Amino acid sequence: MTAPEARLLPRGTGRALALAQVALGLTTIVRARDLGDRAWLGLSPTAARRVVRVLGARQVAQGVVTAARDDDPQVLLVGSVVDALHAASMLPLVAVRGPYRRRAALSATLAAAAAAVGGAAAER
Rank of each mutant, 00 (worst) to 15 (best):
R7G: 00
S89N: 07
R53K: 11
V54E: 05
A6L: 09
L110A: 09
G63I: 03
V96Q: 09
A47V: 15
D34M: 07
A115M: 09
P92W: 02
V96F: 02
P73I: 00
T66M: 13
A113M: 15
A115N: 07
G98C: 12
L8T: 11
G56M: 10
T109Y: 06
A48I: 00
D83N: 14
A20E: 12
V94G: 15
V96D: 03
A87G: 13
G36V: 04
P99I: 05
L85C: 10
G42V: 08
R33F: 04
D72C: 00
Q74Y: 06
V64I: 12
R11V: 08
D37K: 15
G118S: 09
L77Y: 10
I29S: 03
L85G: 12
R69P: 09
V78M: 01
R103K: 13
G12Y: 04
I29D: 02
L19K: 06
P99F: 00
L76W: 00
P99K: 07
A87R: 02
I29E: 03
T13L: 12
R38C: 13
V52L: 01
H86L: 11
A48T: 11
A116W: 05
L93Q: 09
V64A: 11
R11F: 00
L41R: 13
G63S: 01
V75H: 02
V78D: 01
T66V: 09
T27G: 15
M90A: 13
G42F: 03
R11N: 11
G119N: 12
L106S: 15
R103A: 15
G36I: 05
P99Y: 00
V82L: 12
V96G: 05
L17T: 03
L110T: 15
T13C: 12
Y100D: 04
A18C: 05
L9K: 04
V75E: 04
P92D: 03
D37C: 11
L9S: 08
L106N: 14
